[in-house]
Structure formats: C-alpha cells, structure tokens
C-alpha cells in the first residue's frame, strides 16, 4: 500500500501534479476525517430531518388551526430563505444567546459547537421539505382504498399501519431520496462555520500545499462519486420496493 502512495510523490516530483492527501500520511488523515465528517453530518441530519418530517406531517393534520399555521409557517420560512443564512442565524445569533459552559481546561466554551449547530440547522432545513413530502405521500393514498379497508372492518389504526403507511412510503421514496441527496450536497455549507468536513479539509490542504487545481478536481470527483453511489443505492432500493403496477 505504501508503495502505491509513494508513487504519487514520484508523480509530483516528475509532473508537478500534487496530490498530498495520497502520499502524505498527515494530509491523508485529514482528508479521510473530512470524508467521515461529511458522512456523519449527513447521517445525523438525515435522521433528525426524517423525524421532523414525520412529526410535522402529523401536526399538519391537526384539527387546531394554529398548530397547522405554525407548521406551515416553519415550512415556508425554511424553504424560502437561504440555508446559509439560516446556518449563520443558528450559529451566531442563537448560539450567542446560549449560556457558556466551563470546559475541561477551566475555560469558557459555547454550549453547542459548530457541528451541533450545523446538524440542527440543516435538519430543520431538510425537515421542512420532508414534511411536505410525507404529507403529499399520505394524500396520494386514494380515499377509496381506505374505504375498502373500512368496509372489511379495519379500524383506524389498522388502516393506518396496514394500508396507508406502506402505500404512502412508496410514494414518498423518490422525493425522500432526492432530498437526501440534496442534504449530502448541502452539508458543504458547514464549511462556513468551520465544521471540518470534506470541503473544509480540502481547503486546509490547498492552503498548505498551494495545489488548488488538484484539490478542486479531486473534490468534484469525490462528491460526484459519493453522490453517485448514494443515488445508485437509492435507485436500487426504490426498484426493490416497487410493486408491479403501482406508481409509474
């Protein structure tokens, strides 16, 4: 393996194509940590945005007018304002209002770090889309299918767990996957508040090595592959969930 990495040092010496994240173990570690951070941030946001989506879709069916209005207000605000400004708002504005806590070395540090704020902000952003996705999925289940289940004596809960949810989930899946892919791309915004994800680490490396061109091309390829693999997995999943003749 080491000879493989060393080959890139030779490549640099011979051609000037500088890929330190391959031949330099320190940069390699940084880049790998950045990759893991991107994955971690994506997974955390995915989890919370789906929870927000489910709760939001449920609250949107509430009979209380103001509950529905607040949920709709949340959706519209998060969908129609720049996610980067949302992130700044959370990190700088709300972050500065929270109390400081004492850290292990006796110093003061914010209650929540940049990773936590990035996770919160992006979860709310993606969650706003998920509420709409889940709700339109539920609405896409025909009333007549629900009626048929009622005529067979299913109670409300059984209709929900046996008929509505399995069908709605299949309707949601493409949009949900699309949103997930967008979420992974949006994690790059965390760069702006210095969360050490892939873009941030690449920036560190090109600052140290003055190899912007190589790092830029590498980043493009890396995200292309990451998102490409994700899209491929999601499409296979969608296909395996497909019911003959349902959906189109």
């Amino acid at each position: 393996m080491e000879t493989f990495f060393e080959w890139f040092r030779v490549l640099y010496d011979d051609t000037g194509i500088n890929l330190p994240f391959l031949y330099d173990s320190y940069d390699r570690g940084r880049m790998f940590d950045g990759f893991l951070m991107t994955i971690k941030l994506s997974l955390v946001c995915l989890f919370f945005s789906v929870i927000i989506g489910i709760i939001g879709a449920w609250l949107q069916g509430s009979s209380l007018k103001w509950t529905r209005r607040i949920i709709n207000g949340y959706i519209q605000i998060f969908r129609n304002t720049p996610p980067l400004v949302q992130l700044y708002f959370f990190y700088f504005a709300i972050g500065s209002l929270l109390p400081k806590v004492q850290n292990d070395w006796g110093g003061q540090e914010p209650l929540l770090g940049s990773f936590a704020w990035a996770a919160i902000s992006l979860s709310f952003f993606a969650g706003a889309f998920n509420v709409e996705i889940f709700r339109s999925g539920l609405e896409a289940v025909p009333e007549s299918t629900v009626e048929a289940a009622e005529a067979l004596g299913f109670n409300r809960l059984q209709v929900y767990t046996d008929i509505t949810l399995p069908l709605a989930f299949r309707v949601c899946l493409p949009a949900l996957n699309n949103n997930l892919v967008n979420l992974v791309k949006t994690t790059t915004l965390a760069y702006a508040i210095a969360v050490p994800e892939m873009l941030y680490e690449a920036n560190q490396i090109w600052s140290d090595n003055v190899n912007v061109t190589e790092m830029m091309l590498f980043l493009l390829v890396a995200y292309f592959l990451l998102v490409g693999v994700l899209v491929w997995v999601m499409n296979s999943w969608e296909r395996s969930m497909k019911i003959p003749g349902y959906g189109s």
Partner: peptide
C-alpha cells in the same frame, strides 16, 4: 355485510391471496 366497489380498490402492495387473507388475519 361484504362490499365490492366499482374501482375494485384492491390493496396494491399485496398479492391476490394476501388481499384475501388480510381482513381475516388482521380484523378477525
């Protein structure tokens, strides 16, 4: 009282035999 609808309203995510089995299993 059993009922059959104009639009059949089968459960699209279940096979024919599962459609028939669902109510006796889940309801009865």
């Amino acid at each position: 009282v059993g009922m059959v609808f104009q639009q059949y309203n089968l459960f699209p995510h279940k096979t024919a035999v599962q459609n028939v089995m669902m109510a006796p299993l889940r309801v009865l």
